[in-house]
């Protein structure tokens, strides 16, 4: 129990989908006057999911579109709270799902480092002390004082990656293998993640690319219709999964 990094106990995430379009107060009032209640369908994006990941493990998550992978990452990274059940997380989490969340395209690269740093929960002082290192890793020091609307999408992603991974996180969440920037930068970012892995970061990797799952993960969790179908050793599960998806 002491070396648990992520633990989910019977986690359910329920979305409520209204049968008609999003209610406005006006429609709601009309309906209320007609004594007709708004009807909903409940949809469980995650259904009673339980698993536990130890510190330092690299775990892959596979499943078809709509199986609940993104919802799972959101519930772990605290964006949504579970409807039922418990999510437990130890340590600082770096969700690499949303590189550059909160970037303001009118602002310069430098200003955005502070902004994105603050979105990730770092204080201004902390970001300032690491500014040079972030700029250097992103490799865009010549343009750092230009508004990022002038950047290419690769440059924006590089900056986002450099900010999000500057400090070693305890838990790293990766949605699809990061193809950020050019070949050189991809190598550089992969090396950084590998180094964090060797230094003991827990990694949660969502991918459709079974080869990279096989290469990187010790364990795999297979999601289907919001539930864990099976979890276990990577070779067994990837084999079953590819058999099923191919047939």
């Amino acid at each position: 129990m002491d070396n648990v990094a992520i633990q989910l106990n019977n986690v359910t995430v329920r979305f409520r989908i209204p049968h008609e379009k999003i209610p406005t107060l006006q429609e709601y009032a009309i309906r209320w006057l007609k004594r007709r209640s708004v009807s909903f369908t409940d949809f469980n994006a995650l259904n009673n999911v339980s698993f536990s990941i130890k510190q330092g493990e690299t775990v892959g998550i596979i499943g078809a579109n709509g199986a609940g992978k993104s919802t799972l990452l959101k519930v772990i990274s605290r964006v949504i709270r579970p409807t039922h059940g418990r999510v437990f997380l130890r340590g600082r989490i770096a969700p690499l799902l949303e590189l550059g969340a909160g970037f303001d395209y009118e602002m310069t690269g430098r200003e955005n480092i502070f902004l994105n740093g603050a979105v990730l929960g770092f204080s201004r002082k902390d970001t300032a002390s690491r500014l040079d290192r972030i700029v250097e890793f992103s490799g865009i020091s010549e343009f750092i004082d230009a508004p990022i609307r002038t950047y290419s999408s690769g440059m924006v992603a590089r900056l986002g990656f450099a900010i999000a991974t500057d400090i070693q996180p305890d838990v790293l969440i990766i949605d699809e293998i990061l193809a950020v920037g050019d070949v050189d930068f991809q190598k550089k970012s992969a090396a950084r993640i590998l180094q964090y892995h060797n230094d003991g970061s827990t990694i949660l990797l969502v991918s459709h690319d079974l080869d990279s799952i096989k290469n990187l993960c010790n364990r795999v969790i297979w999601l289907e219709h919001g539930s864990v179908k099976i979890a276990g050793r990577v070779d067994d599960i990837v084999e079953k999964y590819s058999l099923e998806t191919l047939s």
Binding site: R78, P82, R86, V87, F88, R90, G91, I93, D170
Partner: peptide
């Protein structure tokens, strides 16, 4: 160490 527990 930082902890997040949705139940507590």
């Amino acid at each position: 160490m930082l902890e997040y527990d949705s139940a507590k």
